[in-house]
């Protein structure tokens, strides 16, 4: 009953969505043979470079290794997707 109510108010995700998200995450590492530490290192470097030009929200930064179709759409290729929220662009470059 509690579960049903929370569904109506749209507060909890269905268990299959949880399954899908967990799978997508675990497969990123399975496929790329890349450790979470490696990704953390990449993340750290990206923050360093971008911080020279912009003020970013480090806590909300999200970086993932995933798979996507290539431009021709005939092959699946690995892709690095980063979501970096910008707080402020520094003007020192002008």
């Amino acid at each position: 009953m509690i579960l049903d109510l929370s569904k109506i108010f749209g507060k909890s995700k269905s268990s299959k969505d949880v399954a899908k998200e967990r799978l997508q995450l675990v497969l990123i590492h399975d496929r790329a043979n890349v450790s979470p530490q490696f990704l953390e290192m990449v993340k750290g470097e990206i923050i360093k470079v971008i911080s020279n030009y912009m003020e970013i929200d480090e806590s909300a930064l999200d970086i993932q290794l995933t798979r996507t179709k290539n431009e021709e759409g005939d092959r699946v290729v690995p892709a690095l997707i980063a979501n970096i929220p910008i707080r402020n662009v520094k003007n020192s470059g002008k």
Partner: peptide
Amino acid sequence: MVKRGDMMTIDDIIDILA
């Protein structure tokens, strides 16, 4: 179970495995 949202759908699985 698929209807309840407690089992991944065919599309979910194809999405993942491509």
